[in-house]
Structures are given as structure tokens and as C-alpha cells.
Design a protein around this nucleic acid. Structure first.
Lengths: 252, 252
DNA sequence: CGGCCGGTTGAGTACAATCAATTCTGGTGG
DNA sequence: CCACCAGAATTGATTGTACTCAACCGGCCG
């Protein structure tokens, strides 16, 4: 293995601060120093498209910090169907466990590079560094918020509503990361979307078409959507979660 | 306000340790010392049945630690329907926020007493006490696991499956807390269950009846179920998450 | 006694699942 | 540059399940 030619800055965690306004932007929580300290205890893992990162029930020896690419966390239903728990992007943490065992499986959707953090090392660091702990707490709050929103999405019955909420989710993720985008990129395929929002891939397709023919969205290709009619879109997806600026203005 | 006559031991957090086997039992994570320290910075809040604890979008000034009773966290859908994000029992933390605003609402299902922890005080404590931080991290992992399991449940389509998974959820919660029970107590009504598992209350009733007539469960009254046919039950609900004892035996 | 709340039952409808066939797309090699 | 191929996506016809709306039941409390 040759050394990585690009400069390595170490693991990264970005999230909203649960308790301080941040103008709708996620911040990089870790300091340069923290990232360096985490870097020395971590190795870099590479996964090919479709490759398994870990399996549910395996001994949880490490957590992963996605660097590039997209991964999925998933669970297998009793009838064999695969339910996607979360899509994981850069700066996300993966490897949730309980009692020393992973509580879900994970695999790469695109090619993925990630920092692999052995939990033994991480844990000893956590018991020393309250600052790092606090950042992990922030990230977990963020993941919890996402998981609840996912459940909220799944509680909807109409396929178009689910799809619209999903698109809103992905869009806001990019906005929160500071990327102004006219188009929503969809690195996952129709079946991934279906397994995430709890409908079949055929229903996903029909929902896309329904939104397209109604002039609400426009597909450039498989992986790029544009929201044409924002009002109609928001009426289907529901208002996006409180944007601080709007919130503060309308309140009091 | 008279002083509380019963001895106060202070806030409590119980969860699985994410990284150490614990024989399927949740532990009380906080030490006597930590609980005392948290107690001095907290006040006791009492909520009547149905009373609102906080509303989505409100400034997040405190988090709550349920002491007695049952509460619900919920979100309102665009069509006005209420989706229950989580049922909250003793030792649970509630008050998830982002950017200083609550990201869901919460209200009491039964009469509730809770410790109210102002986040300003809590946060200053968190930046000092790595041990406390670690315990909060454990609890958040636990909540995240629950939220993902909830989403998994919601991704099922058949009402009987959803209900069975829900009952399994509640049962395991009691087992994890060390209470051996022959009967599953349901402190919430049919409409709460429906709002949690994403079906109408009529469908909840029909699912209960379906399981009853098939001889799988038995209702003592509105609020107490007994699982009669465990095999049939598990076949519908899916195998319960890895129980460490079984897991270790069947592995290697 | 009457009203209310939680719960049950029933008939008709709407929506997505299913299964199967077909088209589209992007990538490959000749 | 084109022909070809495999995987992804679309379309269509049918079926099943839960939703809707409405009526009804039973206990509890004033």
C-alpha cells in the first residue's frame, strides 16, 4: 500500500449544534487538533460499489467515518426484504451497536473511502476528552433527528408524498452542508429509494412520473432532479423543518 | 410547593452499553454521585394526562428525564395527522433539538413526573465531565437504535405484522429493564398505537382480533396482552434482535 | 339517566403490491 | 462508430389490504 498522496486531515464530523442557532448550516465540529488525534488511531478503509462494510450481529470492533462516496445502513426483514435504515454521506458516522454487536448491516452504494476507528481506542479517548464527547453527542442528536424524520416519512401512505419528502430530505442535506444546488443529485438507484421510503421500485417510478407530469419536478437523467414548482412541491412534501431565519421572523 | 416526601435520588439514565456485553440487560448508567450533581441543577416537573410538555419549534431551554408515567414525542403531518415518534418511559431522555429549537413535540399520555434539566446548566456540565458525556452517548445510541427499529417496523405493510412487532418492542423493553412479565402492559390506547405504527385505529383493532382469533395472543382487558403461541408470534413479528446468550451459543 | 369516550363492526373504495412483459440506458468490445 | 448486451427503469393488468365513513356497543362519570 502506497502512502495516500493527498493531504489527510483526519476524521470529520459535521452536524447542527442542538442548542445553538447556526443559520441552518452544519458546522465541522472537530478541531484540527481533534482530527489529528483521531487520525493517528484510525486506518483508511476502501470499499468497492456494493461491498459489505459490516453485518448485523458481527462483533462491533470499529465505527466508520465516511470520507467519500455513499453507503447504506440496512436491516433484513423476516421475509427477506431489505429495509434501508439510512443513507450515509461524507462526515457521517456508521457502526451503531448494542452490547458489542452491530445492530444493522452496512454496505457501499458507490465506491467508498472511510476512516476506521477501533472502538477500544476510541472509547479510551472518549473517557478522557469531554470536548470530543460533546461533539459525538451533537452528531448522535443529528442522526437521531434524521432517524425520526425517516420514520415520519415512512408513516405516510401515499407514494408521491413519500417521494417528495425524500427529495426534500436530500435537498436539505446539501443545503445544510452549504452547497447551493439547483439540482438534487441522486447517487442511489430506484430500488434503493424504494427500500428507504418503504415502497416498491415500480411505485417509485410511478411517483416520479406523477410528479413530472404534474409539472412539479423535472428529471435531467436517472440521477438528477430539479424542482420546478416549489409551491406545489412543498404542498405535497409538507413544509420543510423550521428554517431559523424564517422562524425567528414569524415568531414573537 | 411542599418538599417531596419520598427520597429523591435524582435523574436516571438506563441503556445498553453499545460496546460491552450486558446479558441483555440495561444498566443504570449514572453513578450516585452523578445523579446527585444532576439533581441539584434540575427541578421536578409534573404533567397531567394529556398535558403538553413542549411544542416543536419552541426554544429548547431544557431536556426532560422521565421519572414516572408515560409520554409521547410526536410530529404533526401536513394533513393534520399526528405521528408518534416515540413512547417515553422512566429513565428516558426527551427534548431533542437542533439549532436551539425542539424538533418534535411531546405530551403526557398518563400523568408524568420528570426532571427538568436546563440545557445551559447541563451543557456546562457536559464540557467538564467526560464520564457523564459518555453515559449520554450510550443513551443516545440506545434511542437511535430504537428509532431505527421504529422505522423498520413502519416499513412493513401488513397491519398484523406491525402490531406484532410493536408488542415485541414493548415486551423487550420490559425484559431489558429486568422485569419478568407474563403479560405485556399497554398504557396507551388504540389510537396511540395506530399513530405509532402508522395505521388507523380501526386497523389496530382488526389486527388485535386477527391475532386473537388465530390463538396467538390473548387480551385480558384493553391494556394487557399475553402471548399464547410464541412460535406463531415470532414468525409474524420476525425474530427478536440478537439476545447475547443465544447469539454467543449459535456463533462460532 | 344521559352523554362521552374508547373501542368495535361493516360496506365500499382507493391505492400500492404483485407479476409479467417491454423499453430504455450506459457501457463494452468489435 | 456501431452493434450488442445487461442492468435499470417503465408500463400494464390484476389483486389484496388498509383506508374511509358510518353505525353501533359498552363502560364510566357526572
Amino acid at each position: 500500500m502506497a502512502k495516500i498522496p493527498i493531504p489527510i486531515r483526519g476524521p470529520a464530523i459535521s452536524a447542527f449544534d442542538p442548542w445553538a442557532p447556526s443559520a441552518g448550516r452544519m458546522r465541522q465540529l472537530l478541531t484540527v487538533d481533534e482530527r489529528a488525534r483521531l487520525a493517528v488511531m484510525s486506518s483508511i478503509a476502501r470499499f468497492k460499489k456494493g461491498e459489505t462494510i459490516y453485518l448485523e450481529g458481527d462483533p462491533a470492533e470499529a465505527i466508520f467515518n465516511i470520507n467519500t462516496g455513499v453507503a447504506e445502513a440496512y436491516k433484513i426483514a423476516s421475509d427477506g426484504r431489505e429495509h434501508i435504515t439510512a443513507f450515509l454521506f461524507a462526515d457521517d458516522l456508521v457502526g451503531l451497536s448494542a452490547e458489542g454487536r452491530y445492530t444493522n448491516s452496512a454496505k457501499a452504494i458507490t465506491a467508498v473511502t472511510a476512516y476506521r476507528l477501533p472502538i477500544t481506542l476510541l472509547r479510551s479517548q472518549l473517557s478522557k476528552d469531554a470536548e470530543l464527547d460533546f461533539h459525538v453527542i451533537c452528531k448522535l442528536c443529528e442522526e437521531l433527528r434524521q432517524a425520526q424524520r425517516h420514520a415520519f416519512l415512512l408513516s405516510e401512505k401515499r407514494a408521491v408524498t413519500k417521494l417528495a419528502m425524500f427529495l426534500q430530505l436530500i435537498e436539505q442535506l446539501h443545503i445544510a452542508k452549504g452547497q447551493q444546488i439547483a439540482e438534487i443529485p441522486l447517487p442511489m438507484d430506484r430500488s434503493h429509494i424504494g427500500r428507504y421510503i418503504g415502497i416498491t421500485l415500480e411505485a417509485v417510478g410511478r411517483a416520479f412520473r406523477a410528479l413530472t407530469t404534474r409539472g412539479i419536478i423535472k428529471l435531467r437523467d436517472r440521477g438528477h432532479v430539479r424542482i420546478v414548482d416549489r409551491d406545489a412541491f412543498d404542498k405535497i412534501a409538507g413544509d420543510p423543518p423550521v428554517l431559523p431565519a424564517i422562524e425567528l421572523a414569524s415568531r414573537d
